[in-house]
Amino acid sequence: MAAAAMAAAAMAAPAPVFKSQTIELPADAAGFPDGPNVKAVTQNCLACHSADMVLDQPLLPRATWAAEVTKMRNVYKAPINDADAALIVDYLAATHSPP
């Protein structure tokens, strides 16, 4: 594509300088609010992501939350057992579903 070739213009800039870098990431800004089975939620979900990932979602029906938990287990391989998975879905349905 001619336009693309023209956009990518060769430069006479100085060579890049790379320095060693170390960063420290901040702690999670929020935890899970109280609710039924919050312990199972905290013990499982926080292993891979902070609570705001869940809390920022729109209110979702129980079936959608169940599908999300299934996806976390089957696709992302979160080691959540059947009993905890059910507890987590109950928490999400109770605290973050449409009335």
């Binding site: 999670d28 705001d52 920022d56």
Partner: peptide, 26 residues
């Protein structure tokens, strides 16, 4: 449907004040 309020985060390295959508992964 709401739930659109977000805090600002100022403590991520090499970043200025940003809308915090999720702490981890950032």
């Amino acid at each position: 449907g709401g739930n659109g309020a977000r805090p600002l985060a100022k403590d991520f390295p090499q970043k200025g004040s940003m809308v915090l959508q999720r702490s981890r992964p950032p």
